Amino acid sequence: MVNQKELKEHIYSLEKALLNSEVRKSPDRLNELIADDFVEYSSTGEIYDKENILNRLPNEEDPGITMSNFKLKYLSATTVLTTFKVFIESKQKYSLRSSVWMLNNNKWQMTFHQGTVTDLGY
């Protein structure tokens, strides 16, 4: 049986990693964290797949992202939903985020992500 507290901490660390500039600039690390069938509905309204992420993120400047209000919900023994808020320093904007993580070959990978811009700074 999975220790729920440990799993929450582990998934939190993976979400934090994806906000980290070093990880975002590493195609190899991004490839490990993102599932092959990944889909993102971005806060700009665009839809991205894994190939786009691997090509785009390593070339971006660090946007300075901080995360708060992290929550995790179990969807199944091998699938979890995360929800949280981020502040993007470079844009001076908040967004609400959600991700679906699945256990693939004994490693957790993000399979879905969505960002929604909000004015709420709570």
Rank of each mutant, 00 (worst) to 15 (best):
M1L: 10
M1D: 13
V2I: 08
V2M: 12
N3H: 11
K5R: 12
E6R: 08
L7W: 11
I11T: 11
Y12E: 12
S13P: 11
E15Y: 02
E15K: 00
K16V: 08
K16D: 05
A17P: 06
A17K: 09
A17H: 06
A17N: 08
L19V: 05
N20I: 12
S21D: 03
R24N: 04
K25L: 14
K25Y: 13
S26Q: 15
S26M: 15
P27S: 13
P27Q: 08
R29M: 13
R29F: 05
L30H: 12
N31Q: 09
E32L: 06
I34V: 10
I34L: 08
D36C: 10
D37M: 02
F38Q: 02
F38W: 00
F38A: 03
E40H: 04
E40A: 02
Y41E: 04
Y41K: 01
S42P: 02
S42Q: 13
I47Y: 12
I47E: 13
Y48A: 06
D49A: 14
D49W: 11
K50E: 12
E51K: 15
N52I: 10
N52C: 12
I53G: 01
L54S: 13
L57G: 05
P58I: 04
P58H: 05
E61M: 01
D62S: 06
P63T: 13
G64A: 11
G64L: 12
T66S: 15
S68E: 00
L72K: 07
L72M: 05
L72I: 05
L72H: 02
Y74L: 14
Y74R: 11
S76F: 10
S76P: 10
A77G: 07
A77E: 12
T79L: 04
T79Y: 06
T82S: 14
I88D: 09
I88E: 08
I88G: 09
E89F: 00
S90A: 15
S90C: 15
K91I: 06
S95C: 07
L96P: 07
R97S: 00
S98M: 06
S98I: 03
V100S: 03
M102H: 14
M102G: 15
L103K: 14
N106R: 04
N106M: 06
K107H: 14
W108I: 08
W108F: 09
Q109N: 09
F112Y: 11
F112G: 04
H113L: 06
H113A: 01
T116M: 01
V117H: 10
D119W: 03
Y122E: 01
